[in-house]
Design a protein around this nucleic acid. Sequence first.
DNA 1: CGACAGTCTCTGTCTTGTCAACTACTGTCG
DNA 2: CGACAGTAGTTGACAAGACAGAGACTGTCG
Lengths: 158, 158
Amino acid sequence: MARPHDSNRPATRWFDAWRGVLYANAKVLRVAEADLVARFGFPLSWLDVLAQLHDAPINGLRIQELQAGSLFTPSGITRLVDRIEAAGLVRRERVVGDRRGVRVVLTPEGRRRHDEAFRAHLPIIEREFASRLTVDQQRAVADALSPFWHDDPDGSSG
Amino acid sequence: MARPHDSNRPATRWFDAWRGVLYANAKVLRVAEADLVARFGFPLSWLDVLAQLHDAPINGLRIQELQAGSLFTPSGITRLVDRIEAAGLVRRERVVGDRRGVRVVLTPEGRRRHDEAFRAHLPIIEREFASRLTVDQQRAVADALSPFWHDDPDGSSG
DNA sequence: CGACAGTCTCTGTCTTGTCAACTACTGTCG
DNA sequence: CGACAGTAGTTGACAAGACAGAGACTGTCG
């Protein structure tokens, strides 16, 4: 947010890049989210969790692992898992050897719904995001922004 | 959200670009937001509104204009303006000739606080975002993502 | 073993934003 | 003028996350 209009704003190159990130994110996400809810009845945050679990070992992930792989706080994950569990797509199980902990495991139904939804989700992102970039631009953006997810735990400044 | 890990995911080039947008957005925003709140006592959404008003005619903007320039719904803007108004940074005034309407106007205090906060905000974005890209990368990202804010009202596919 | 600091998850409470419905007003058409 | 469709903004009810702190457990040190 906080984008300079044309007046007495800095209007630097990097601010345009930042503004692009901001808007691309918001606009694509809005469409993708609405589509997902309309067609599958759950939001992107669920798909995010389901996708993490899909890609995880069969015995699931702990709350803190889900949290580390997401943009939520621990309490946010607890409540998110509550909802997904209530819908029957995941299940909480005990962790052997640590009775504080919880493993979150995909149910068969959860796996099925993930597969469906993820298959439907990709073309939406492709249509709303990728199709508006040339292949070179896709590569350029992917390279330029890779530091932000290429495990740099904190994004700390240099 | 919903990022493929390394397993049996498509792992296309454009998905990496999308993931970069997602993560860059989230990580930079998180830091910028925290910094703004810590140093100026208000969140980015306020700065966004203040910046729009700063760049607007002296007699302010209508609710719907603020809404068009933001990522909020009308009711979201109403409530956002409520809070900023309660803090004394903007004021609602009548629109001559349309008694349904409202102009939102920056107070002197609001202008002052905007200036302060915006000056402080830019270097944060520069540090957290721009400094991790080369100048060429900045240009590439700015060019590639410009369709998303270059007035394309809806981001419709096509 | 017992104390105690640290860890893992959950809960109470609050904030923020959405959606749908509502009030108030405008302009048009008879 | 009076009806009426459309527009501007607000409100009620609710959903989703954040934060701080609680509860349950673990491992270590005496």
